[in-house]
């Protein structure tokens, strides 16, 4: 039975909004288990967001409209991206809105404004966070493009639905180019979503924080939106990886059963990715900021190898 594509789209965005905090909660929980600590509840992120939404906003006197506009923009961009990435179905009305390059640019505009907001108040921390975030982003971008390039060689397309479709139709054989691209993508995703070893989302230590330094002055509903959006960003990068490299289980059309079946498959994959992420985060220490060049340099190298191996082996 086919359902209206718009319903699929709305379902997908609803899944994004609901599952993103859940995924963050899951990662935190597994991390606590691995580190031998008592974990907070799986639903703690929801409580945090609800608490922040209920609070008043404390705003610095010299904050401009950019500071107040940024949380809404970042949130809006995340929702838009959630409508584009094939999370549940490959046949989305919005999927043609942006290919993967335009999607990366959508995230870039959110980052651009977050960095501006960091500089808006005029504290040393804000500027430090903005400077570091933009530095890391500049190094991640070429690697990201090369990874996209390697994947698009296989699917002859940069459209996300098309990429997912081609990979899911292909035999489950091991394509060396995709393996290298996946390795590169994992490194880039760690950098882009601000996880250990590039940034630590749990820290508020002056010298190590990057993303947290930019948003240090936020409070109340603004902070709620930013936190929610960064949870969505982690979720979206995960689903972007799933759609490009492990698209099996994502519905290919608007069939009701297929779309409904995609949800448990997605949750299963997210569970596994969460454990993997925790393994990386507990296994590695945070890097010094100038070591990140090498980290992202190796991501670039992996992606280039992926491209070369496509030309040589496939």
């Amino acid at each position: 039975m086919n359902i209206h594509p718009l319903i699929v789209e709305i379902t997908q965005i609803a899944v994004l909004l609901v599952a993103a905090p859940l995924f963050t909660g899951w990662v935190k929980m597994v991390k606590c288990w691995f580190q031998g600590r008592t974990s907070p509840s799986l639903f703690q992120p929801y409580r945090d967001i609800r608490k922040l939404l209920a609070k008043d906003v404390t705003l610095a006197e010299n904050a401009s409209w950019i500071f107040r506009f940024t949380p809404y923009l970042v949130f809006g961009v995340s929702i838009m991206a959630g409508g584009i990435i094939p999370i549940l179905s490959m046949d989305l009305p919005l999927s043609a809105t942006a290919d993967v390059i335009a999607l990366v640019a959508l995230f870039a505009i959110a980052r651009f404004f977050t960095a501006l907001a960091g500089m808006d108040i005029g504290t040393a921390f804000g500027g430090m966070g903005s400077s570091r975030e933009m530095t890391i982003a500049s190094l991640a971008e070429p690697a990201m493009l090369m990874a996209v390039f390697a994947v698009s060689l296989v699917s002859r397309s940069t459209s996300l639905s098309q990429m997912a479709l081609v990979v899911s139709q292909g035999h489950a054989m091991l394509r060396p180019s995709l393996v290298f691209a996946l390795l590169a993508f994992i490194l880039i995703a760690l950098a882009e979503t601000g996880r250990v070893p590039v940034d630590n989302p749990a820290t508020h230590l002056e010298l190590t924080m990057i993303h947290e330094a930019m948003i240090l002055e936020y409070s109340g509903r603004h902070l709620a939106l930013i936190e929610w959006a960064s949870m969505m960003k982690l979720f979206l990068f995960t689903t972007l990886g799933i759609a490009s490299f492990f698209p099996w289980g994502i519905a290919r059309n608007d069939d009701l059963v297929a779309v409904l079946a995609a949800i448990p498959v997605l949750l299963f994959k997210l569970g596994i990715v969460g454990v993997g992420l925790v393994l990386i985060e507990t296994g590695l220490a945070k890097m010094r900021i100038f070591r990140i060049t090498e980290f992202l340099g190796s991501a670039f190298l992996f992606a280039t190898l992926g491209m070369l191996s496509f030309f040589m082996l496939e």
């Binding site: 838009m80 919005l94 043609a96 809105t97 942006a98 290919d99 390059i101 335009a102 959508l106 002859r156 397309s157 940069t158 459209s159 098309q162």
Partner: peptide, 11 residues
């Protein structure tokens, strides 16, 4: 369209 697409008005 299968190759790449971008819709600025919708975005």
């Amino acid at each position: 369209a299968e190759r790449a697409s971008y819709s600025a008005p919708i975005a």
